[in-house]
Simulated assay, not measured.
Amino acid sequence: MSFRLSVIGFTLNKREKPTADSRKPTATKLLQTMKVTTTEQDDITVLQVTGDIDSKTAPEFERNARAATDSSKKIAIDLTEVGFMSSAGLRVLLMVYRNIRTQNGNVVLVGVSEDIQDVMSTTGFINFFSIVETVDEALVILKQD
Rank of each mutant, 00 (worst) to 15 (best):
M95E: 07
Q41R: 12
I126V: 11
T80A: 11
A138L: 01
V96T: 03
T57I: 04
V46K: 01
V132M: 06
N104L: 06
M1F: 02
T134C: 05
N106D: 13
G105D: 04
S86H: 03
M95C: 01
G124Y: 01
R66K: 15
Q117C: 07
I75G: 09
T45D: 05
S55V: 09
M120V: 00
V96A: 02
I116S: 08
L109M: 07
Q32P: 07
L79T: 08
S6W: 02
L94D: 02
S55F: 12
V107S: 05
V49R: 05
G83Q: 11
S113A: 07
F84H: 14
G89F: 05
N106H: 13
V110Y: 09
T19G: 11
T123N: 03
M120C: 05
I75R: 10
N104T: 10
T45L: 06
A138V: 08
A65P: 13
G83F: 00
S71W: 01
M1K: 15
L139R: 13
T80L: 07
A88N: 06
F3M: 13
S113V: 00
S55A: 14
T26R: 15
T28K: 13
I141W: 01
I126R: 13
K17Y: 04
M85D: 02
N13A: 08
M34F: 00
S113R: 14
S71P: 02
G89A: 09
M120Y: 06
S87M: 02
K29Y: 07
A138E: 06
D118C: 01
A20I: 12
D54P: 01
E133K: 15
F61M: 13
L90V: 13
S86V: 08
A88K: 02
E62K: 15
V107H: 04
S130I: 04
G105S: 07
G111F: 04
R98W: 00
F125L: 15
A88Q: 02
F125A: 14
Q48D: 12
D52G: 08
I126D: 14
T102A: 13
M120R: 02
K29A: 11
A27G: 09
M85F: 05
L31P: 07
S72Y: 04
R91Q: 08
F61D: 08
G111L: 05
F84A: 10
S130W: 02
D136C: 00
P18G: 00
I44D: 11
F128A: 15
V96D: 00
A68F: 09
V119K: 02
V140F: 00
V108D: 05
N64Y: 00
K73V: 00
V132Q: 03
K35N: 05
N64A: 06
I141M: 10
V112K: 11
A27Y: 08
S22A: 10
A67E: 13
S55W: 06
F128N: 14
T38P: 00
V107T: 15
D54C: 03
F61C: 11
V119Y: 03
F61E: 03
N104Q: 13
L139Y: 03
L79E: 09
V108A: 05
S113Q: 14
I126P: 03
F10Q: 11
K29E: 14
L90I: 15
V36R: 09
L30F: 01
E133C: 07
S121M: 06
K143P: 00
M85K: 07
